[in-house]
Design a protein around this nucleic acid. Sequence first.
DNA 1: GCAATCAGATACGCTGTGTATGTGATTAAC
DNA 2: GTTAATCACATACACAGCGTATCTGATTGC
Lengths: 218, 218
Amino acid sequence: MARRPRAETMQENRQRLMAAARKAFAEKGYAAASMDELTADVGLTRGALYHNFGDKRGLMAAVVHQIDAEMAAEARRIAESTAPGWPALLAEGEAYIAMALRPEVQRIVLLDGPAVLGDPSKWPSQDSCLHATRDAVDALIADGTLLALDPEAMARMLTGAALNAALWVAASDQPDLVLPRAVVAFRQLATGFLAKPGPGLAPTRSGPQIRGLRTTSP
Amino acid sequence: MARRPRAETMQENRQRLMAAARKAFAEKGYAAASMDELTADVGLTRGALYHNFGDKRGLMAAVVHQIDAEMAAEARRIAESTAPGWPALLAEGEAYIAMALRPEVQRIVLLDGPAVLGDPSKWPSQDSCLHATRDAVDALIADGTLLALDPEAMARMLTGAALNAALWVAASDQPDLVLPRAVVAFRQLATGFLAKPGPGLAPTRSGPQIRGLRTTSP
DNA sequence: GCAATCAGATACGCTGTGTATGTGATTAAC
DNA sequence: GTTAATCACATACACAGCGTATCTGATTGC
């Protein structure tokens, strides 16, 4: 028989369990997701689950970590494809807004995550998204672009505003329609941290675009 | 016997159940709170609970509604005891930050609430806090103090930033120490919505006050 | 005073988690 | 190459907790 190394199949099983968990948690919510069902879906039993993740919460932690990492990576990609500095920070925030519209992110990371794992800043993953934003803020403070306040607080408020805006957008009747308004408001709010606020504020001009579009730099 | 009217004792039982629920939900979290224990604590059984609130979630909704209303009332009181207009809006936001430090508010409203009941904007209570902030924003837009963006989005982001900041403060090692920094950052961020940003930004001047106590500025 | 109502209690079933134990395959020792 | 140890996962069990269906004694309206 194809003697596959043990560690390999184990890794694959972990992946499959996490994939199933993402699906179940996103669709039914953490509380309503049955571990029995979930494991059966990928041809395993709860035995495998408890062996790999300790308990249901452990699986949740792993899933949240994974999604969080993906989000941070995507935000970083977007930020890097933008003019560095202030526009990149804005782009990052907008990226979070856009990502938070995905049901998976919304349900797992924003709604159930804090309830199950506590505040994001204490997550095992240490919350990559927050970290990334904090780094960006640090750089912009050193840079003189932003006011020298507590960078942790600033990062926290920016991501908080962005993610909260996203929840609002998602809960609305026509997400596609209100999304641009949220983005505009976010951009405007963020200017509060600028060391020298741009003179002409023309927020609604130049059409707010998300995901890849040029952010108007002051 | 003292023939108390039925509606009266029923009302009292409801109150007692809710009081017990606030305690249990705050201390153990929604998921870990046992309805059997909770009802026994006030000398009742689950029968009373299901009769009055439908199910566990119904009880949670009632509790959240109650706390939310209390928060909104308190915020309003604070706002009214401040110079009307912009300062009042800031005071309101700061009040939310301070209130969110209370374990009850934090655990029930901020962490478990969204997971159990969904996004605050869809809560039965319609989220009084959000509503209050929105009204304040509306007035300040009409007033010309704030930029005329989507008021819903603005309110959402302000409360989002405030509450997120509070969670951050609460999760920190020395809440008392970082709270002032959060307040300063909040005040500064909020200026982003001002129609004409003040020239000299002296956020720490005039002492950010939380619940009546003067925060030490570093 | 009597019947209808109703708040709350009692009893039951069921789902789901966690744990303790079992087992067959893989790995490592000799 | 055989054997012993390990280990990933399965099986079996105990138990807590939610929801519902049914019951009961008190209150209310007539």
